[in-house]
């Protein structure tokens, strides 16, 4: 039986707002996995808490809906245990840049071979529109009639400052392009960070498809951090595409000296082990 988008569909009713970027993101993810001929049972997806987390039962795979901001460490633990599975962490800009920012930073530094989808809709949406570090300055938000006091975090700048192995940006309004980016991220051997500019028609109405589609500009893959930074800092456009890829960095697991000659995965190794040699050396 061939694998199609339909192989990934579940019969759970969708609960996102009409026009929500999550519809297209899910479609792109399903399409990417199907085109890569991954069976749903070969895929592990961890979900954040928030609107993206509500997608946990809307795509068929081995999914974990965990804790707010914690999609990454759960995915990393799963990945290290069995690399035969394709591991993807999906997380919002709130969870990723606020409560879970340390996981992103150390994930990039460690270069685990997983793919991270950051759903950037510029607010905490499920708790009805609070400020995040990507919210537009001056925009009236929940409890803050004059907008946020604090500065911003630019996801691309942050990621590129950490010597990443893969950083891409996609747009939820361009499903076909996003599909290709996700495919590249999954294929990349290392920590693939994909920021997805996500429409939120309920709490970020100003940033509509009309506005966004005029800003987005597709760029080619680059192996220069400087070039990628230029794209990110260009305020006239929203560059999308694989902005930076470094294939030379070795992923975490492949760098482990004690796993070099071992062919099995950790999940195959849960067996009784004799410890007398170690005891004798203590």
């Amino acid at each position: 039986m061939s694998i199609t988008i339909d192989s990934y569909n579940t019969d759970v009713k969708n609960t996102w707002c009409p026009g929500c970027g999550n519809f297209n993101i899910h479609l792109a993810l399903k399409k990417a996995l199907a085109e890569l001929k991954k069976d749903p049972s070969e895929v592990v997806i961890t979900f954040d808490i928030g609107c993206n987390g509500n997608g946990g039962d809307k795509i068929k795979a081995f999914n974990i809906k965990g804790l707010h901001g914690r999609a990454l460490p759960i995915a990393i633990g799963a990945h290290l245990a069995n690399r035969e599975m394709t591991t993807i962490a999906t997380i919002g800009d709130g969870g990723c840049l606020h409560e879970g920012i340390d996981h992103l930073i150390h994930g990039i530094r460690s270069n685990y071979n997983i793919t991270v989808l950051i759903h950037n809709n510029q607010n905490f949406a499920l708790t009805t529109g609070q400020i995040t570090s990507t919210t537009i300055k001056g925009k009236r938000m929940y409890g803050f009639p004059h907008g946020k006091t604090e500065g911003d975090i630019n996801i691309g700048e942050l990621v590129l400052s950490l010597n990443p192995s893969f950083y891409a940006r996609g747009y939820s309004g361009d499903c076909i392009h996003l599909t290709e980016i996700i495919k590249e991220g999954i294929k990349h051997r290392g920590f693939s960070v994909i920021e997805i500019i996500q429409l939120c028609p309920t709490y970020n109405r100003e940033f509509s498809h009309d506005v966004a589609s005029k800003l987005v500009k597709k760029v080619d893959v680059s192996d220069s951090i400087e070039k990628a930074r230029k794209h990110i800092l260009n305020s006239k456009n929203l560059s999308i595409g694989v902005l930076y890829q470094n294939k030379k960095l070795t992923d975490y697991y492949s760098s482990l000296k004690n796993r070099k000659s071992i062919k099995t995965e950790l999940v195959d190794e849960v067996k009784r082990k004799n410890i007398s040699n170690i005891l004798a050396k203590l």
């Binding site: 592990v44 759960i74 990393i76 633990g77 950790l266």
Partner: peptide
């Protein structure tokens, strides 16, 4: 959380 990810797997 890494423990949970690995144990789950």
């Amino acid at each position: 959380l890494m423990v949970l990810g690995s144990m789950y797997m």
